[in-house]
Design a protein around this nucleic acid. Structure first.
Lengths: 220, 220, 220, 220
DNA sequence: GATGAATGAGATTTCATTCAT
DNA sequence: TATGAATGAAATCTCATTCAT
């Protein structure tokens, strides 16, 4: 009987949290597929038996991690306000990226597993798709608002999101000693210019050609 | 004794090719860690015994795939000419992206495994780092040339490359029915403006602000 | 220290009884081998710790159940009077079967575990063999008395007993909605005719033929 | 990929047969629940890996054993001819019991697991119920034919069958050194008199009393 | 008296690799 | 050259029992 169905006392809660923490750490180090229960319990300094006291199996622990990540990511979308074409719009976008970065620092391994399509458990997979889809949809709305409906392609926004994810992944996870701030400044600027600026056109505009678009922009 | 040390007749070559092909397919479907020899031989319609006739072990097959990918990717860098700030520079970049895309269609699973840091075999890992590093270095050179040495951060270029990889991954692998052409047009434009354009600043330039840059661009 | 060595207050007695009750229920549902301490404590609505407060281990609880069953079964044998060849003999047998049935309703799972040879604990196994053997011996005596010593095979009587057990098991445990009364009437008649009737021969009498016996019976 | 889906060469067939044989032996020794893969492979003198080459899991092996048993048991029912009230009817019954006994010698452990309701795998459980039910139905038909429709209770026949099973179990499995022949003679006689004889009444006839029935029989 | 937590031995299952034909 | 068979180390999971509160 895993923990989901049981009442936990303070010690139990602590152990469960330690296992989740350890799971996250091992996930970060080895990736979804290569993570073994053995690694998790060693990091959590407990036994196999204890693991199965709190989780049905490995996927169950990942599901718990994933739900926490999904909650925080959903909050991200909720807090994204209007992104106008002016500097205040860019600032709004920058704030969003900052929060995305913070969320990534907390849930990076899970987000990465989703983004890299490593998840096999259908429930967790769906949760990931929904979560990413939700953010993409909000982004698409903001883009459409900002560009007066010229750009509203949710698909293109998904790709945009994936690109943001990858950049933040590099900033967060790689031992690059990169200063996140300036990079996110820059990214915010690029995205604002590329997607929210007056006259910006979506990457996927049907029949879109590079020349006309360039012309448009040149002439503004 | 695996195939590397043996002469192969035509039938042997065919079998080896079938195994490589199958390995690539399974790699695409299941990812590096989850790929089992059993899957490969089933797809290749042969036996476990035969597999080890041609490859020392699982990693050996991946190494073979990786070397082929590395060769084609190295060629990518070799063929990238100067990328000036004008339209012909953007066209050059667009051509590079087109070839990157073609390469991805052939070697996507391997490139992805590298980009997602899934590889454990040290030799293959090094090969990947070298390959990506080589392209990043050439990109960094071109950027430096184009901007007169203002921008030359190889690290930033690595990130740029990773982002390109991700976008091309989405275009190539996802069942999005995306038309690659326009997307690559758009990406070429963005990258050219962002990295190679007159007055462009590198993502990592400290104190970079979006406004001045926008102004600069507007005036061009 | 388990309960056997301790004095129990009224609450303790209640808890112990609840565990025994639960043990019996789970034994009935899952069988001897598949019964887990976890099931028992869940049914008894208590904890693992509490279980081991009252029983040394799983087998100890079964031993307690078994002793209760053995006592009641021994009483069965004690109360079996002479079974003459006449109707009053059959009535005596019928009464015995009725009490067997009652006992089965109370201790069925334990009796069944014995009859099906599921018990591994040597002490409990011996107890079962002794208990069944005791009843079989009394039955054999009664048969021998009734047939004037012609039939006295304890082994055959054991088999007879096992068959009775099986029939009663079906009547008791299966969801057949069978009315026990008529079935036991019938069974009493069959057994009386078959084993206690004038001229009846034991199943194991060498060279026994059905025809002569039928003739004999017809002529009575 | 277990053997069900693969082609097997002679060596493979031999190994699979050895595993089935070992499974039957361990099943006989330890019973359904207590049988471990470890025991089976030790008896079959092979490895765990090999076991899973031929069977998906323990239940899969039992399912294979069960299907073989079910086939042979179905044949039992098919071969049971009319059982008239005369001696040739009893002989027919005796032949049936003899074949039941032979079948039990081949498939005893499986039949016993079914009869003792030890099976948990739903498919195997159903197979057992169907198999026993099929035989019981044929028995019930024969009884009904023989008694002119007076007796046709399938339920009662199920119990009859269970009793036969138990007797044969004792004869077959216990180290009683019993001579099966005379016992089966006797059993055939009892069953013939009890169920197929002229004027016999079913165990479950509603309102049946032992006295009237006895009278009836006496007067025949 | 009672309980939730923890443990570890043992059972099941997977899979890369080797072997015999 | 090819293959089915076999292996065993390692991973997952279960559960009777002990422990600390």
């Amino acid at each position: 009987m895993p923990a989901a169905t049981r009442e936990l006392r303070s010690q139990g809660k602590k152990t469960r949290a330690r296992l989740l923490e350890a799971g996250m750490q091992v996930l970060a180090e080895r990736g979804y597929q290569a993570t073994r229960v053995d690694d998790i319990v060693r990091v959590a300094d407990t036994s196999h038996g204890t693991f199965y006291l709190y989780f049905e199996n490995k996927d169950d622990l990942f599901a718990a991690l994933a739900h926490a990540a999904a909650d925080d990511m959903a909050a991200l979308a909720d807090q994204l306000g209007a992104v106008g074409p002016g500097p205040e719009g860019e600032a709004e976008l920058r704030t969003f990226l900052g929060r995305f970065h913070e969320t990534y620092e907390r849930h990076g391994p899970v987000i990465r597993a989703w983004a890299e399509n490593q998840v096999t458990d259908p429930a967790v997979l769906t949760l990931g798709l929904d979560t990413f889809g939700g953010i993409a949809a909000v982004l698409a709305d903001r883009v459409a608002e900002s560009t007066g409906g010229l750009v509203d392609d949710a698909l293109a926004t998904t790709i945009l999101l994936a690109t943001v994810e990858r950049l933040v992944y590099f900033v967060t996870s790689r031992p690059l000693a990169l200063d996140a701030g300036p990079l996110l400044d820059e990214l915010a600027g690029m995205l604002h210019r590329g997607f929210f600026g007056a006259g910006a056109t979506a990457p996927r505009r049907r029949g879109a050609q590079s020349k006309p678009r360039r012309t448009t922009r040149r002439s503004r």
